[in-house]
Nucleic acid binder design. Structure first.
Lengths: 166, 166
DNA sequence: ACTGTATGCTTGAGACTTCAAGCATCTTGG
DNA sequence: CCAAGATGCTTGAAGTCTCAAGCATACAGT
């Protein structure tokens, strides 16, 4: 007799899935480590902090609400609070009361922060490029991006920030 | 006149590369967070620790040299030392002197550790599956794995553990 | 055998993250 | 207007990770 489907038993990963999963976990560890080390050495900040400065530099008037920034960077508010506190000490970012909402805070990129970012960016993109994009064909870049987008979309409820659509 | 190639200026990312990179960073943040939370809630351990237990469970006699385990998991020896110390407190892992090399230590998976792993595995694979593999076609699984493997290979010098081949 | 160096692993301090709790302000429904 | 709940953000403590330094053992050359 065949083993009947068991509701308690999950569907394990196939061999292909296992292989892909292990490859991802490894790539991830090595990559995070590599980039963190590079940025820590050259700029004295972890990779996440660099990402925050980038988001701010993209924002109009170089400022964003804390919650907005946290959501954009996919980190918790708490983590952001600590991060901003740290970067405020370095003078890279400044906090500013929000005029509309007395509870709110804006994180503002300072001139010094912008300069750090500009000085750091070339080394960082080079690291990213040599670690990843110089090794991939354009098709692979596209495939990789598509898969990552699917994963990301799956993990943030559609319209999590648009509750009126749900 | 056209801007001449500038040696100091790095090759920035193309738009496609940017998009893929951002997608990756986001997917990564969300995924790490998701899995860490799931494992922390259901088993009281972060994702990395789970990976260590898995590697040990795969090893002959459920034991590995510390350095070997660290390399397999792509983490530093230091990080592993701390991790094992923590899991030793929980009774999931035991340290054992290495007979051949008096400097060496073996990390050994205990019965309790194995049980924790067995109890935790179903929930974990389900989380991985629903977050990733249930959303991808077989081709995408293969493509994703291939790209990750390329990245991983690029970051660990070929034959880093086989110095006589270099 | 002996010195110098490499290897295996650990340690402590400081940096970062998480988690739960907290304060202040805003908003909604009487 | 007011109470009750929602939202925005911060805080402190505990857990984890990094980095540099350290100890002990192994190995290589003389």
């Amino acid at each position: 007799m065949k083993t009947p489907p068991d509701a308690d038993e999950p569907r394990w990963l196939t061999e292909d899935e296992q292989r892909s999963w292990q490859a991802y976990v490894q790539a991830n560890m090595l990559l995070e480590d590599h980039l963190d080390r590079q940025l820590q050495r050259d700029a004295g900040m972890p990779h996440v902090y660099y990402g925050l400065l980038v988001k701010l530099s993209w924002a109009p008037r170089h400022r964003m609400r804390m919650t907005e920034l946290a959501e954009a960077a996919k980190i918790t508010r708490s983590r952001l609070s600590h991060a901003v506190a740290r970067m405020e000490k370095d003078g890279w970012v400044r906090r500013e009361d929000c005029p509309d909402d007395k509870r709110g805070q804006n994180a503002v990129l300072t001139d010094k922060g912008l300069k750090v970012l500009q000085d750091t960016a070339p080394g960082h993109v080079t690291a990213v490029r040599t670690a990843i994009f110089d090794r991939l064909t354009p098709e692979q870049v596209e495939q990789f991006g598509a898969v990552c987008q699917i994963i990301a979309d799956g993990l943030q409820p559609a319209g999590a920030d648009l509750p009126w659509l749900r």
